[in-house]
Design a protein around this nucleic acid. Sequence first.
DNA 1: GTATGTTTACGTCTTA
DNA 2: TAAGACGTAAACATAC
Length: 407
Amino acid sequence: MYEKQSLDCPQSGDYLTMLSTKSPYDPSCSSGYTMTSMPNMNSYGTMGSMAMSNMNYSPPNMGGMPPQAMSSMGMGMHAASMPPGMNSMNSIASVNGMGSLPPMNGMSSPMRMESFNRAQAINRARDKTYRRSYTHAKPPYSYISLITMAIQQSPNKMCTLSEIYQFIMDLFPFYRQNQQRWQNSIRHSLSFNDCFVKVPRTPDRPGKGSYWALHPDSGNMFENGCYLRRQKRFKCVKKEMMRQSCSGDDDDSCKSPDSRDGCSPSPPPPPPQNHVPSGHEIPETKSEPLSNEHSAPTPVQQHERHDMTPNIRHMQHDIVSQGYNHPAGHPAGHLNHPHSFNHPFSINSLITDSAKMDMKMYEMQGYGGYNPHAMALPPMSKDSSHMPVPDNNGYYKTYAPHSVGSL
DNA sequence: GTATGTTTACGTCTTA
DNA sequence: TAAGACGTAAACATAC
């Protein structure tokens, strides 16, 4: 099974090929960037905003991605949508003057030079070894991240399965091939992960399949800053208990999830906040419209809310208002919410920062290939013995899932 | 018939 | 080393 997958597996280098190739759009990038001073590599959020905040480049073709999606995701440029040969890192460095950034925390000059030399060696190795099209490189995002992006970019924070498919394919050309394989994984992820909830269609919007939304409490799924491998899977505790209790009997309680209470991305579960059904499905009933004084609903949202159950509307309210209830009408209250979506590595940030960060991290950390955990590396240590050591090919030994590039 | 959704199983890799 | 996260395959059920 996996032998077959490895045949067309680009593993590492495809993204890096793109990164290490001179950009035709940025004539200033020929010399690349200097690593003589770098910000703390763990300050991803900071790095992202520092390095990318001034990026106004708009690629001529975003792979069919609607402008709305681009703006809502904060993606001025993304690797998968860049023209072949686009050197995002060099462009970023040039535009933002990366060379003058504050020194890396605790990193001595010899260490910086060592890193620089290592990076140079790696770049040379890359140039020699990898020249494949970026379209074959698997984006450094888990399916959960991709689904989250798709949902987040949608106006209603809800997507149908086909919309999720389309979003991913539009954004990442890699996923335009072997659709059966990854789409099965997408469906599996949606069903398996409690962080995704199924919202039934309203009668006035018939069609196939339900809408999928993010569980309102899933906002800090990526609080550890790793967009690819969460330290803790979001679990609805109550649902989990139901699964266990249902495994042995056919108790009625198994059939009617009634609250999202007990759902938490990480223990301990948060105190009850809303009353939204746990599990994937939200029952449909009629009730009064819900006013939302915090965010002016779009026509679509207004349409959606009409004829919507309290729970659905409540959930949608939560979702639209970034995944939680505003405390006492305080529009900015979510900034202090423990599950705030505005956490630097929250789902919001996943969308606004991750796409900016991924290429940069690969390049700057000198990883020789797709490394989904590059973003979750421990802080740089003063002790060089803790530094990753490249292998004989100049590549660092890092985790590269078997599935990388296997589609 | 096809798309969608659920569930199970298994492999790889990371982390505690 | 066990547990957990993730990816993949596959079987099956259901809805359109």
